[in-house]
Amino acid sequence: MAHLLPLLTALLLCSYGPVGSLGCELPENSVQLSRMTLGLLVQMRTISPGLCLRDRRDFRFPRDVLNASHFHKTQDMSVPHEMLQQIYNLFHTQQASAAWNKTLLAELHTALQQQLQDLNACLVQGRAQQDSVLTTESPTLALRRYFQGIHVYLKEKRHSDCAWEIVRMELLRALASTIKLQESLRSKDGDSRTS
């Protein structure tokens, strides 16, 4: 049995290797849709951030999850997917509906749903292989902890207007960072097609 462990480990790693070559490419319109989402978040501003300075919080955005060179391609795509899913979940609550302009909120939901559908096709292909070797410090786990902190903050602040404004500002920065990752992934896709 002791001799089987290295063999099983090798087989597991070999089965994981092709995930990046499953033909999964970031959809061409993903960066454009993310920029549209970013624009919607900008438009959603309801109060001046200057009025909310006492409510500021460092949510400790896990910037290391955005380093595309550290992960296989499917994991890379799981980062923008997880980010968009968590933003969707955050703004798809009763508290969010009460806090934001209904029209802009509906447009945000639609944009996020489109992006999530586009990314799902690729993720489904590699999900089983990816899940089998995720570590406790996976990029998606780090993002989930980050968003859990945002949920806790909103609850502590009783979903006040200032709390939502601070979260909106935080998500603008986080989404802008995710767009940079998507641009990097798009350029990787272009490089892999030309080689």
Rank of each mutant, 00 (worst) to 15 (best):
M1A: 12
A163S: 15
I166W: 02
A176T: 15
T140D: 12
Q86F: 04
E28T: 06
L181W: 01
A142V: 04
L66P: 08
L11D: 04
R54E: 12
G50L: 09
N120T: 15
C162I: 02
E28Q: 09
S34K: 06
S177E: 10
S177L: 04
M44L: 14
C162E: 01
H70V: 03
R173M: 07
S21M: 11
K188G: 00
D64A: 12
A121V: 11
L8F: 02
R158C: 06
V42K: 15
F59W: 06
A142R: 12
R173F: 08
N101I: 08
A176P: 04
L171T: 00
L175D: 05
S97W: 05
K155S: 14
Q117H: 12
P62N: 09
S78Q: 03
R60C: 09
Q130W: 01
F61N: 01
M169L: 10
S34L: 12
R168F: 03
T37Q: 06
L41Q: 01
R186I: 01
Q85K: 07
S21L: 13
P18H: 07
L141I: 07
A142S: 11
M83S: 07
R45C: 04
S21W: 09
Q148R: 13
L112G: 02
S184Y: 00
K155W: 11
V65R: 05
C24I: 02
R45V: 04
S15Q: 06
L104R: 15
L8M: 08
S21V: 07
L112N: 02
T110D: 15
M169E: 09
H3I: 10
L185G: 00
G20T: 12
E28A: 11
Q32N: 13
H92F: 11
L12M: 05
G39L: 07
G17M: 02
S15G: 10
I87E: 07
L41E: 01
R127V: 00
V167T: 04
P49L: 10
G20P: 13
L22F: 06
S195T: 10
W164S: 09
L123G: 08
P27V: 05
L53F: 07
L134M: 14
F91Y: 14
Q86W: 04
L90M: 07
L123F: 06
C24G: 03
P80E: 14
Q113D: 13
D131L: 01
S69D: 07
R145C: 11
S177K: 04
F59R: 05
R168L: 09
L105K: 15
A10N: 02
V79T: 11
Y146V: 13
R144F: 10
E156Y: 13
A128K: 00
R168K: 03
Q86S: 14
C14V: 14
C122H: 07
S34W: 06
L172T: 02
S34V: 03
D118M: 15
M1W: 10
S132M: 07
A2E: 12
D64K: 07
H81Y: 15
Q148Y: 13
V133D: 00
G50D: 14
S160W: 06
L11P: 01
P27L: 03
K188Q: 03
H151L: 09
G149C: 02
R60Q: 14
L90N: 02
Q86L: 12
L175I: 05
Q32W: 08
Y153N: 08
L51M: 13
P49F: 05
L116V: 10
Q86N: 14
